[in-house]
Each structure stands twice: as C-alpha cells, then as structure tokens.
C-alpha cells in the first residue's frame, strides 16, 4: 500500500544541511497498522510527511497504491491527498469553527452537497463518540476529544490510508489508550491502512502489527512487533523494548549477580507464544537436581500472543545446571546467562 524506495530527504537552511532521511526503504501492506518508533529528531515526521508530499523527497520514491507521489500533477496530488487522511500531535483544528464544521471542512472543500455532508458528519460524530458535541468549539473540548475530532475529519473523505504524527503524544496515558482503541477500530471496520509514528514504544505494543525503528534518518531495524519485542537486534531497539517491558534488572539483583558462582547461576528465560503456558520451571526442578528461584520477571501479551520474560537463579551442581539449561532452551524458549553489567 505504501512503499518507500531509497527515500532521502535533505533540508537545506543556508549553509547547513540536515539529512533527515537517509535512503529509507520498506513497505507497508494494505490493512496493516504500521508503527515507526524513534527518538526525537530521528526523521519520523519527515518520513510521514513524504507520504502525502507535505515534504518532497530529495531523492527516492514513495509509492502509495502503486502511484509515485512526486510524479503527480498538483491537481492529481490534491485528489490523492483526499485518499490519505492525516492526524496531528496538536490536532490542528480550526478554532473559529464548530466541531461539526471542522469535520465537514474536507467535504465543503470538495463541494459536497449539504444533506450528504450532514449525514456523513453525524455518522462520524457518532463513530468517534462525540454526538453531543457537534455544536461546540475546539477550545471547549479536552485533548482526547480534540483528537477524536481530528480523526473524524481525517475520515470524512473515506481515505484508504491514515497517517498519524505522534497522535497521542500530547495526551495522558488513559486518553492515549482510548484513542489507540479508536484507531484499532478504524483499522478493523474500514480496513484503513494506518502508518503511525511515535516515540512511545507502548503505542507500538498496543496497536501495531509491524514496526520500524528509526535512528539518524535510517531504519535500523524492522519486523513484526512480536519479532522486534522478543528479539530486538540493535541497542536502540532493545532500549525501546525495555522501556515498556521493564526487563532491565533492578539494582537489588546486582548483589546476587555479583555473588554468583558455578553452583549459583542466573539466567534470563524468554518465553514466546505457546511456550509461555508450559510449566517449564517445575519440569526443570523435577527432572534435574537443581533448585529454581525466580528473581524477577513478567508475562505480557504482544499482538494477542503471550510473551514472558523471567530471570531465574539455578542452584545446584554445575553439570546439572548445564543439562537443565539445554533442556529449557528447546522450542520457542530462549535462555541466556545473565552476568553482571550486561543483561
């Protein structure tokens, strides 16, 4: 649905050049919720804005539904843009217009008939849960409500693609969740492809199916949310994953790590998928002559697949511990030794 082909974006301001995007290539399938995560300045907004050509790529191409955006005439581009909705961190609503008129604006602009507009906007108001608020002005709404107006406005032209630029970054956690739920619903009910960018990994975890991690204008890692969360490859991705899974070891464990010896070894066990339900630890304790002590860990869900992360100490004979580890590391379970300074 959206395809980035070696997209490079260079901003020139006087003598300074900023390479905001450096040969970015990846593809977003139709019907996906694709997340791009990265720290501030990584180039996420530039990437998003290249999709509807708010920024023109310096080189490379962006294809939406097979069409090269930069190859369109300005008239074709305006038409195409109606097929690509966009929502913003700061909502960008028209302050002098009512909620109803804000949502209707794209329809007014394309010369839609009054009665069509009325029906459509009322449906959208209901869909985003603002039926009672159509006559209000944006400054009478909460942040979450404003974003709902933004979403309804973006949907008014029946787009196939929705671009979200940090759409929840100005909202509190609870409101964020409700907006993310709404985006999920849009994706399911209208089969709209969603590309969202964020610096918050929990946004990715809550609704995305795929994720790309950006750093310094490059996509440094990409894959399904499950892959990246369970096996992050780069240090940056690992840090993002840690920020939501909280799998950094707490300080209180440092002592235990410092004092481990051949007969007291600490391991991190990562369960994914069906393996999460298995009674692995009790099996180890029964089959081998080792004691198992759980030091730290949690179980969560990624894309409706259970995902667990445990830090355990195995106490016993060195040889038995090794056998236990080999046994445990079969199938979908990953076992890594944990040593001080590294986790």
């Amino acid at each position: 649905m959206i395809r980035f082909e070696e997209v490079t974006k260079i901003y020139e301001s006087g003598k300074n050049e900023v390479k905001a995007l450096n040969s970015v290539s990846f593809e977003i399938e139709k019907g996906e919720i694709y997340g791009v995560v990265g720290y501030s300045g990584a180039g996420k907004s530039s990437l998003l804005r290249c999709v509807n050509l708010l920024e023109k790529p310096t080189s490379g191409r962006v294809l939406v539904d097979g069409e090269n955006m930069a190859g369109l005439s300005s008239k074709e581009l305006r038409k195409k843009r109606k097929n690509i909705g966009m929502i913003f961190q700061h909502f960008n609503l028209l302050n002098a217009k009512t909620v109803f008129d804000n949502i209707a604006t794209p329809l007014y602009l394309q010369g839609e008939k009054k009665n069509v507009i009325k029906e459509k906007v009322n449906n959208l108001l209901e869909f985003v849960g603002l039926s009672e608020h159509g006559h209000k002005y944006p400054d009478q709404l909460s942040g979450g409500q404003k974003q709902r107006v933004g979403i309804a406005r973006a949907l008014s032209t029946d787009p196939e693609v929705l671009l979200c630029d940090e759409a929840t970054s100005a909202l509190d956690p609870q409101t964020t969740s409700s907006i993310l739920e709404l985006l999920k619903k849009i994706n399911k009910e209208y089969n709209i492809t969603i590309l969202l960018i964020t610096h918050e990994m929990n946004v990715i975890r809550e609704i995305c199916s795929s994720v790309a991690v950006m750093e310094k204008g490059k996509v440094i890692e990409k894959g399904s949310v499950f892959e990246v969360f369970s096996r992050p490859k780069t240090e940056t991705a690992r840090r993002f994953v840690s920020s939501v899974l909280q799998d950094e070891l707490p300080d209180s464990l440092k002592n235990i790590l410092r004092n481990q010896d051949k007969n007291h070894q600490v391991f991190r066990i990562v369960f994914t998928g069906a393996s999460t339900g298995q009674p692995l630890l009790s099996q180890i304790a029964k089959k081998f002559d080792v004691d198992v002590s759980v030091l730290y860990g949690h179980v969560t869900e990624l894309q409706d697949v259970p995902f667990g992360n445990l830090v355990v100490q195995l106490i016993g004979d060195e040889h038995e511990i090794r056998r236990a580890v080999i046994f445990a590391g079969q199938g979908e379970v990953e076992v890594r030794e944990v040593i001080e300074h590294a986790s």
């Binding site: 305006r78 843009r81 690509i84 960008n92 609503l93 794209p106 602009l109």
Partner: peptide
C-alpha cells in the same frame, strides 16, 4: 499546523 492540515486535506 492548520495550514498544513489544509494542505493534507487537498485544499
């Protein structure tokens, strides 16, 4: 941002 939103709407 409002001008940008207008552009994104295809105005």
């Amino acid at each position: 941002g409002i001008v940008e939103a207008a552009e994104a709407m295809g105005a």
